[in-house]
């Protein structure tokens, strides 16, 4: 598994640079320009991340997180999710930066290559901030979405929650 993935990224980058050079694209300038955008994204995430990680670490230190995890455990195991990932599954459709903070905290405390670390990664990578998305896109054209759209988005989210645990068990 790891071997396969370690080929993927360098080969992709090689092909990309080759294509760029063949097309006479100023590849380094574009890289720096893009990197600047990435830096901006990191910097603009920092204040939100600080607020949320602070609150999460308070929840953890106070013992509230443990308590909540023990409450949701039975429901979570019903869908095959580790209890630690439940807050992420709940927050993901609502807030992108919030779930980034939760994921960061989880990867650090559980380890990125642990079972719950991997399930959390799949949850974060396979779902989108659905409610936010609906609000932004329909808000832009001054329309209200209909119930069908909401139901469809919820169904999609539910399926990725159901699959995340299963797929990780299948692959690793």
């Amino acid at each position: 598994m790891g071997d396969w993935a370690s080929f993927l990224v360098p080969v992709f980058l090689g092909l990309l640079v080759l294509a760029a050079v063949c097309r006479h694209v100023p590849v380094f300038e574009l890289f720096s320009e893009g990197a600047k955008e990435g830096l901006h994204a990191c910097v603009s995430l920092l204040p939100v991340l600080t607020g949320l990680l602070l609150a999460i670490s308070m929840l953890q230190a106070s013992g509230a997180l443990e308590l909540a995890a023990s409450w949701v455990q039975p429901f979570a195991s019903l869908v095959g999710l580790p209890a630690e990932t439940v807050p992420l599954a709940l927050l993901k459709p609502v807030s992108g930066s919030g779930s980034t903070a939760l994921l960061a905290q989880l990867l650090e405390s559980e380890g990125p290559d642990s079972f719950s670390g991997r399930v959390a990664s799949v949850l974060a990578g396979s779902t989108e901030t659905a409610f936010y998305c609906i609000a932004v896109y329909f808000g832009a054209v001054r329309e209200k979405g209909n119930a069908g759209i909401l139901l469809a988005a919820l169904a999609g989210h539910l399926v990725s929650c159901l699959c995340a645990g299963l797929v990780i068990r299948l692959f690793f």
Partner: peptide
């Protein structure tokens, strides 16, 4: 983000 910016321009 740097590589992807170049990818965008490369087609």
């Amino acid at each position: 983000t740097g590589f992807l910016k170049a990818a965008e321009a490369a087609g």
